[in-house]
Design a protein around this nucleic acid. Structure first.
Lengths: 106, 106
DNA sequence: TTGACATGATACCATTTAGTATCATACTTA
DNA sequence: TAAGTATGATACTAAATGGTATCATGTCAA
């Protein structure tokens, strides 16, 4: 059993963590900056970041006394791989995503 | 916040439940049949099925004294929709999925 | 109709989880 | 160097989670 798959799915199971992932998709942030976006303590945000890091969804770079948290999109790969098992059930949906990509490339 | 999205992600967060989803993708089953595939009691499997049902990932049809559990692939839609937010990060991976689909269609 | 079978439901337990409060550490800067 | 700032780490709590055991209900079949 793939521990990466498990850790990634587990990381995405919490709504706060999914929000963090979306925020970091737009802009990298320190823990303090992220904490400003939520109604919880810095310690709680830090815990979520640890779970996201375990899931391979973010990376952390030390910069002075700050820690820059960045999205690692390839961490979503195990999730997509697992979902791809169900190709035969959602060809239509995948095709619409494919078309969106084609449009964007023009 | 989309409760369906939350329930679907939560349902997929457990490895036993992901296994159940894959088993049901191949063949619909009763609770008893599913229990044979796992090293846990029928009651535990039933709990997982309830979580999967809450997540919209399976449906249950009563047939006599049996309950037929079926995969509901469209329950994965909220998960895919959420992931599609990150299109710009995994064009390559999506393209490989797209290619797999194209190959299959031939 | 009666026994066997498939499931539903409830109570209970141990562990994990999501959060807080608090203190320690390390870096910046006046 | 000393104060302020950003983060790390630990201990603690309440609630959710994953599991069991047990009993109730409903259906099938002889």
């Amino acid at each position: 059993m793939h521990i990466q798959t498990q850790n990634a799915f587990r990381a995405l199971a919490d709504p706060t963590r999914r929000d963090i992932v979306q925020i970091l998709a737009a802009q990298e942030m320190t823990i303090g900056q992220l904490t400003d976006r939520f109604d919880m303590t810095r310690a709680a945000v830090k815990k979520h970041l640890t779970v996201l890091s375990d899931g391979g969804l973010i990376s952390v770079e030390a910069r002075g006394r700050e820690r820059i948290n960045r999205l690692e999109p390839q961490g979503l790969a195990p999730v997509l791989d697992w979902l791809s098992y169900f190709d035969q059930f959602w060809d239509d949906r995948l095709n619409s995503l494919k078309e969106a990509i084609e449009r964007k490339k023009k």
